[in-house]
Design a protein around this nucleic acid. Structure first.
Length: 274
DNA sequence: AACGCGCCCTGTCCGC
DNA sequence: TGCGGACAGGGCGCGT
């Protein structure tokens, strides 16, 4: 579920709420969301007494920088939520997998119905190493049209699949791939290496615009996504194509198409996207 | 090497 | 009301 804007929304809230807090305890209800090698006692031992120095985002991941060069990385999978225990809506959480107790008496809850998410602990060095397999951040200055063109030349994959591959551009998922391709006027089925320079320039701009607009709206809540206070994001109302199969295109009224490939739905306007 | 598939797991919705 | 199937913001490991 959560893509870059949802992770970014969670991170910004956590920066305010938990920066400077110390982890006093960890309770694991569903050990299967821990990374391989990591067991509940190991997690507990690693985190106890560590303070949260900074909260960052990398791709779709929530990254907590702790004292002693430790990095706590939360991948949200499809249904992962990070919710403050104080949030009134915390009562709605029916699938809490891990609870992090903090020194102010509050707690952070990781809730995940499908348990596709994961929680991992790295040293700063190992996290640095791990990040090398994640592609360029689409909101960074490094993400230029030139670079996008160069990266797509060697790929015969449909551009939608290409965008979902986190090793080239990171943070884009199925919703924002669909929305950016709509805004850029490019069909999701187009082979990456057939994207023209002009299309790549539009796609680069569209990706940044849609990601920024969604961050401003605090993310997209189709069904599961909630912020740290348990509140839905507002961007679902601003989607042009995602989850709008059969509904009229908001620019030309042509019915939006849904096609399935690589086991995932893609949505597009057959009139506006070529 | 790059690509697509199957699978991980639970919940919801829709047709019968 | 129950039941089966399709589907869901992700990503890993595998075979080709």
């Amino acid at each position: 579920m959560p893509e870059l804007p949802e992770a970014e929304t969670i991170v910004r809230d956590l920066q305010r709420k938990v920066t400077g807090r110390t982890i006093t305890g960890t309770k694991v209800m569903h050990p299967d969301i821990l990374g391989t090698q990591l067991t509940p006692p190991r997690l507990s031992r690693a985190l106890k007494g560590k303070s949260i120095q900074r909260v960052e985002r990398r791709a779709k991941k929530v990254v907590l920088r702790l004292t002693d060069e430790l990095v706590l990385v939360i991948s949200l999978g499809m249904t992962g939520r990070v919710v403050a225990s104080k949030a009134e809506r915390a009562r709605d959480l029916r699938h809490v997998a891990v609870r992090f107790d903090l020194d102010d008496g509050s707690a952070l809850l990781y809730d995940d119905a499908r348990r596709f998410g994961s929680i991992e602990v790295y040293t700063t060095e190992r996290w640095q190493q791990r990040q090398t397999s994640l592609g360029v951040e689409p909101l960074s200055d490094d993400f230029t049209a030139e670079r996008l063109v160069a990266m797509t030349r060697t790929s015969i994959s449909p551009i939608r699949n290409w965008l979902l591959d986190q090793t080239r551009v990171s943070g884009v998922g199925n919703i924002y791939a669909a929305e950016a391709l709509y805004r850029a006027g490019v069909r999701p089925t187009r082979r990456a290496n057939t994207i023209t320079r002009a299309e790549a320039a539009r796609l680069r701009d569209a990706l940044r615009e849609v990601l920024i607009a969604s961050i401003e709206a605090r993310g997209t809540s189709i069904s599961d996504y909630r912020d740290v206070d348990g509140v839905e994001g507002g961007f679902a109302a601003r989607l042009y194509v995602y989850d709008r199969a059969g509904l009229p295109c908001l620019k030309c009224t042509t019915p939006i198409k849904r096609v399935v490939f690589t086991n995932r739905s893609a949505f597009y306007c057959p009139q506006c996207q070529k």
